Amino acid sequence: MERVETARDLVLGYVRALNTVDEAMRVALPPLDRLADLLGLARSRRISRSDRIGTYSYTVHGAGCRFVSDNGIEVDVDFAADGSNVFDLWRLRQYGLSLPEPLEVTDDDLRAAVRSLQPLLNEVRPGWFGVAG
């Protein structure tokens, strides 16, 4: 049970870190209504696909964006068609490994942790999760 609690703490930490990134980006880039708007700004070349904003470096990729804070914590997120933030177990693991005291957890523990956090989180498509809105 302790492993699932550790995985649960990791998932909650990721969600908090994602919210922090979202807030920081919207403050730094006033035209941003939501984090997913970064894709459109990068595609229209209004911002670079890879740069630094405030205390984060970012890289726009495919359907998402990877953020790395000054202290090396990585938050990678994809965006659903409706612009909502979505993530999978791989992104959660990468976040855990980037922490100052890295957390290595199994997919099974992460899956159990995500399930235990419903209805806060929901599975938007198989293997992909989002924060319930």
Rank of each mutant, 00 (worst) to 15 (best):
D22V: 02
D22H: 04
D22R: 00
E23R: 11
E23P: 03
A24M: 01
A24I: 06
M25I: 06
M25H: 00
R26P: 00
R26K: 15
V27P: 07
V27E: 14
A28K: 08
A28Q: 12
P30C: 06
P31Y: 13
P31A: 13
L32S: 03
D33E: 15
D33F: 15
A36I: 00
A36L: 08
D37Q: 03
L38T: 08
L38D: 05
L39C: 04
L39T: 05
G40V: 10
L41P: 00
A42E: 02
R43G: 08
R43V: 12
S44E: 15
R45E: 11
R46S: 15
I47T: 05
S48E: 13
S48G: 14
R49D: 02
R49I: 09
S50N: 13
D51I: 07
D51Y: 12
D51M: 01
I53P: 03
T55D: 15
Y56C: 03
Y56V: 09
T59F: 07
T59R: 15
H61P: 02
G62V: 02
G62P: 08
G62A: 02
A63L: 10
A63G: 07
A63Q: 04
A63M: 09
G64L: 08
C65K: 03
R66P: 00
R66Y: 12
R66F: 13
F67K: 01
F67T: 09
F67R: 05
V68R: 09
V68N: 02
S69T: 03
S69P: 01
S69K: 06
D70N: 13
D70G: 14
D70R: 14
N71C: 04
G72F: 03
G72W: 06
I73F: 04
I73K: 04
E74V: 10
E74L: 08
D76F: 15
D76R: 15
D76W: 13
V77P: 08
V77I: 09
D78K: 05
F79Y: 04
A80E: 06
A80M: 04
A81D: 03
A81P: 03
D82H: 05
G83L: 10
S84H: 09
F87Y: 00
F87G: 01
F87S: 02
D88P: 04
D88Q: 01
L89C: 07
R91N: 05
L92F: 07
R93A: 12
Q94G: 11
Q94W: 11
Y95H: 07
Y95N: 01
Y95C: 02
Y95K: 00
Y95I: 03
G96F: 02
G96L: 06
L97W: 07
L97H: 05
L97E: 12
L97C: 12
S98V: 01
S98C: 02
P100F: 05
P100S: 03
E101C: 11
E101V: 10
E101N: 08
P102Y: 10
L103W: 11
E104V: 12
E104T: 11
V105K: 10
T106H: 12
T106Q: 11
T106G: 12
D107T: 11
D107L: 07
D107R: 10
D108S: 14
L110S: 03
L110I: 09
R111T: 14
R111F: 14
R111W: 13
